[in-house]
């Protein structure tokens, strides 16, 4: 069938795009490393990873080149890809679940909770690892609280959950504001502000290892549930009459999307717009079927955030926080889609 073919082709093209952006991102930056050298370094690293360090290439690179590519650029580019994929896939899943294309993955408070956790950790003078962990845990806690309130409410589940999310979100924002108020203005306040704007500057391989597990734990089930997510876009009565356990499916989506979102925010800070804009672009490419929409969002989101991070690194001598750039790129793109996409997307 035609739409299916389009879907497959789009996934393939986006996969190639992802590979290209991934590799090109290594070549950008003030310290020049040649493409060949970079490729050899990456191949060496991959070989070592697969064979547990038994197989290595003969080094043709200087230690400086190795350190720039493996210690500095690799964690950054990998985390940009992972975070972009996580936020976009979580956004696409949430949009299906809440039957609303305007929903972003922090609807239930994952990001605001994570920001509060990070601000609190910075206030207490914690180490970078503790900031990451605190942010992740508070992100989970915020969504857990939202879910609990939504379940306790006697209203219909979806609306109650959204309202609870708004409330929990503003509660944690208020908490973050209070922390900023009492924070030391010389060191802590700038650190909190900078963290909130989102950046991958400080990401090291260790942080990546910490965030990779929850992100993958969230993304992999979502990827395999990709067709079934369609069944959340119709009314609950219809889905149940088709033998779908809607409660379980919904809980699975919330857990997976929250794991991915909270883990992303915990290493990168607030990065808005990606989870909203990327699924929208993918809808224009492959249509509404989540079977293709989800993988496309995942791939395009990864490429998009790597590109934005490239901009953040190269545009000016001092780095621009990612959150500012995603908003600068995302918002106009979104406006364009609203105006131009109307013909195709009646929703």
């Amino acid at each position: 069938m035609k739409p299916e073919k389009t879907g497959r082709r789009c996934v393939l093209i986006l996969l190639i795009l992802l590979a290209a952006v991934f590799f090109l991102s290594f070549l950008l930056g003030r310290y020049r490393v040649s493409a060949l050298q970079t490729a050899r370094l990456l191949a060496d690293r991959a070989l070592a990873g697969i064979s547990c360090g038994h197989l290595r290439l003969v080094p043709t690179w200087t230690p400086e080149e190795a350190s720039v590519v493996i210690q500095i650029r690799l964690p950054r580019i990998l985390s940009a890809a992972l975070i972009g994929a996580a936020l976009s896939a979580a956004g696409a899943s949430y949009q299906a679940m809440f039957r609303n294309p305007m929903v972003s993955p922090d609807l239930l408070g994952a990001s605001t909770g994570a920001c509060f956790g990070a601000a609190l950790a910075i206030l207490l003078g914690a180490s970078y690892a503790v900031i990451t962990a605190g942010s992740f845990l508070f992100g989970l806690a915020a969504v857990g609280l939202t879910y609990l309130v939504g379940r306790l409410s006697r209203m219909r589940s979806n609306l109650a959950m959204v309202l609870a999310g708004v409330m929990v979100g503003s509660l944690f924002s208020a908490g973050t504001s209070f922390i900023k108020l009492v924070a030391d203005t010389n060191e802590q306040l700038p650190a909190i502000t900078y963290w909130l704007m989102g950046a991958l500057t400080a990401v090291r391989l260790d942080d990546l290892h910490f965030a990779m597990l929850p992100i993958l734990l969230g993304l992999i089930p979502l990827f395999f549930l990709r067709w079934r997510l369609n069944l959340l876009t119709i009314s609950e009565a219809e889905a149940r009459s088709m033998g779908v356990n809607t409660k379980l499916l919904r809980l699975a989506v919330i857990v997976c999307a929250t794991l991915a979102t909270a883990a992303s925010v915990s290493i990168s800070g607030m990065i808005g717009w990606v989870g909203l804009v990327i699924p929208h672009i993918c809808r224009l490419l492959v249509g509404q079927n989540t079977r293709f929409l989800l993988p496309c969002s995942l791939l395009l989101g990864a490429s998009f955030l790597m590109l934005v991070d490239d901009l953040a690194r190269c545009l000016t001598t001092s780095e621009i926080p990612l959150g500012i750039l995603t908003a600068l790129v995302g918002a106009p793109l979104f406006l364009y889609l609203i105006v131009k996409g109307g013909a195709r997307d009646a929703a």
């Binding site: 069938m1 739409p3 299906a96 039957r99 609303n100 294309p101 395999f224 549930l225 990709r226 067709w227 079934r228 369609n230 069944l231 876009t233 119709i234 889905a239 088709m242 033998g243 779908v244 499916l249 249509g287 509404q288 079927n289 079977r291 997307d345 009646a346 929703a347």
Partner: peptide
């Protein structure tokens, strides 16, 4: 909520026959 194609909408009726991870 979304403008699924007619074919995709019909295929949703397979919810009970397909496993959670199937397309």
């Amino acid at each position: 909520a979304f403008d699924h194609t007619v074919l995709d909408s019909v295929l949703m009726g397979l919810g009970a026959q397909l496993g959670p991870f199937d397309s």
